[in-house]
Design a protein around this nucleic acid. Sequence first.
DNA 1: TTTTTTCTAGCGGTTTACCTGTATATTTTG
DNA 2: CAAAATATACAGGTAAACCGCTAGAAAAAA
Lengths: 214, 214
Amino acid sequence: MSTEGKKSVNIIMVDDHPIVTEGIKSLLMDHPCVDVLATFNHGLPCLPFLASHNVDIVLLDISLPDVNGIDLCLQIKSQNPKTYVIALSNHAERSIIVSIMQNGASGYMLKNSPVDEIKKCIINVLKGKLAFTQAVKEIIEKPALNQFKKPPKITKREKEILALIDSGKTSMDIAEILFLSLSTVETHRHNLFQKFGAKNAIELLKLVKEQVVI
Amino acid sequence: MSTEGKKSVNIIMVDDHPIVTEGIKSLLMDHPCVDVLATFNHGLPCLPFLASHNVDIVLLDISLPDVNGIDLCLQIKSQNPKTYVIALSNHAERSIIVSIMQNGASGYMLKNSPVDEIKKCIINVLKGKLAFTQAVKEIIEKPALNQFKKPPKITKREKEILALIDSGKTSMDIAEILFLSLSTVETHRHNLFQKFGAKNAIELLKLVKEQVVI
DNA sequence: TTTTTTCTAGCGGTTTACCTGTATATTTTG
DNA sequence: CAAAATATACAGGTAAACCGCTAGAAAAAA
C-alpha cells in the first residue's frame, strides 16, 4: 500500500508441478502489473521467503511433498495475515475446500478450470473478495448428506488400527502386530464402526476416505 | 524430412487442464520451430483433427473426461501410425506406463517433472527415440513383485460384483441387487479371491486397484 | 487432583465371510 | 460343431467379523 507509482502485485506460487507454475506465469504475463516473485516445489520453504518479502498473493497447492496445503495455509496466515492465499488444487472434495477456507484462504480454484476463470478469481481476491471457480461454487452449494455430519474424531490407536484394516489385515493379524489381545482390536474396530456408522470394514474405509481430510 | 526451409514440428495437446496446456505452450515458445496447432480438453475430438492435419506429436493425458488416454493412444496410432504420442500424466503406476507404451506411445512424462526434462523428452522423441522423464525411468526399472504377474482377467459379472463389494455391500445385499442366489454371489466372490490370491475382500480390492488399469 | 477420555480386555451370541467341493445351463471361442 | 469359459446354484463346514455390554488401568484434560 505504498504511494509510489509502481504498485505492482507480488505473487508467489507453491506447487510441485513445474508445468502448472509455468502455465500460471504465462497467464499472468499479460498483466504487466503482476510480478511472480518466486515459485516453490515444496511447501515449507515459502515461509522464510514470506517473512522477508512483501507478497500480496500466494497460490497454494493442497498436495505437496512435505506438508499439506491446508495446514500450510494456516501457518502462512498466522505469519502474514495480510497476504491473500488462494488454493489451486485438483481436489474437488467439499471437506477440503471448507477446511482451507477455515484456515484463512481467500479463494479456491480447481486446476482444470478455464484460464479466464482463474484470472478472474485472482483479480477478485485482490479486490478483497472471496473467489471460487465455477465448479467449486457448485461443490460448496451442494453439500452432500454426509457433509453435514462433521467427521468423527478418531484416536491415535484407532487411526493405527484403521491403517492396518486398510492394508487388508485381519483382526488377529493386527493383534499380533500391535501386541494386543484380539478382544482389544475388536473393541477398537467396533468403536470405529459406531463412530462412522458403518456395517462392515469396507464401508468403514469408504466413509473414512470420504470424511477425513488427506 | 522435407527439403523445404520451414521444417516446423506440429504438436497437439490433449489434456483437460487448461493450465497445463498453457504451461507446455509457454515451454515450447522458446523453440520457434515448434507449432502448437491445437489443444483439446476432451479425448475423442482429437481424432478427426488428426485425420485432417499433419501432426508430428500428440501430448496425451491419461485421465480424460470422455475416454482414457491408454485406449485413445491405440486409436491414434491405428489411425496415424507416423504420429508420435507422448503421455503426460500424473499417474506413476508402472502398469499404466507399460500399458500405454504397449499401445504405441513413444514416451511417458510425469506432470511434476522439471520443465527441462520435459523439453528433452520431446526432443528425443522427435529423434525417433523412446523418452521418459527421470522418475518414470526409475518406476520402469524397479518392477514391484506384483508387477510380474499380469492382472487376472475378470468377467463382466465378476466386475459387476466387484463394484458392489467395493461400495460396501454384503454378499446378501449383492444377491438381492442382482437377483441372484446368495450361493452364486459367493461363488463369484470366491473365484475373484482365487484369481487375485486375496484372503479377504479388502485385500481383494487393494489388489484390484493395483493391478487393473483405470 | 478430580474428571474425562482412551486403551485395554473379556464374554456370549449372531451373522457374514471364506473354503472345498460339485454340477448344470448358457455363452464364447476355436 | 465341439471345446472352453462363464454364469448359475447348492451343501457343509470353519473362521472371522460383527453386535452389545461390561469394566479396570492408563493417560490426558479440566
